[in-house]
Simulated scan of single mutants.
Amino acid sequence: MKQRIFAAAIAALSIIAIALTSMAWAGTGSLGPDAVTTWNGLGMRSGNATLDGFADSTDTNSVAPLGIWVVVACVVALLAAGAMATRMLSGVALTLRWVAGVFALVAAVVPIIVLIRPITYLTMFDYLSDDDAARYSDLLREHVLQKPTLIALTAVLVLASGACFAAALTAPRRASTYPPEPVTT
């Protein structure tokens, strides 16, 4: 019963993380009402404003699609949750729990990197020198990045990782039946 609760929690947290990845990670709304454009974690842009050469109407790759790593980790976690809930896949479920926990923990680093070094995600500014990038990082962090979304995503991924590890540690251990022992009569 406890494993089914873990499976439901892992699935719910994975779906929430995917939803947070599809939400805006960066936006120009604080720069004025004429410059409202947002970019989600998958690199998709919404809005039609331009930023004086940084992103025009044909440039949709002005941010790095780092959220794809979050989606991959969430898919692995959903597979683990599905394997935990299916009796036929119980043999592979233990391994998937550990793998999903590691993937979710690694994926939690993605929004942290975006918060620490916004230029990694906001590739429209990659022409800046290292000194200029360091100088503008605070400005980008304060006025462009959607910090609540990124912080929530980090928390959800850490919780998902913890749920995967807890499920793996509390999983019932079964004696190996592979290869099957020969039947003697």
Rank of each mutant, 00 (worst) to 15 (best):
Q3P: 08
R4L: 14
R4T: 11
I15T: 13
I16C: 10
A17N: 03
L20K: 04
S22T: 13
A24T: 07
A24D: 12
A26H: 06
G27K: 08
T28D: 10
S30C: 01
S30K: 15
S30D: 14
G32R: 04
P33W: 05
N40P: 09
M44S: 12
R45K: 15
N48Q: 14
N48G: 15
T50F: 00
A55R: 03
D56G: 14
T58S: 14
A64T: 09
P65S: 11
G67Y: 05
A73Q: 04
A73P: 06
V76N: 00
V76H: 07
A80C: 09
A83M: 14
A83S: 14
M84D: 10
T86K: 12
M88R: 15
S90P: 00
W98Y: 14
W98T: 09
A100M: 12
G101S: 11
F103T: 06
F103E: 10
A104P: 02
L105E: 05
L105C: 06
V106D: 00
A107Q: 07
A108W: 00
V109S: 07
I112W: 07
I116F: 09
I116E: 12
R117V: 15
T120S: 01
T120Y: 07
Y121E: 01
D131Q: 07
R135V: 13
Y136T: 13
V144A: 12
Q146G: 06
P148C: 12
P148T: 14
T149W: 05
I151S: 04
A155R: 06
V156G: 00
A163T: 08
A163W: 08
T170Q: 14
R173H: 12
Y178A: 13
P179R: 11
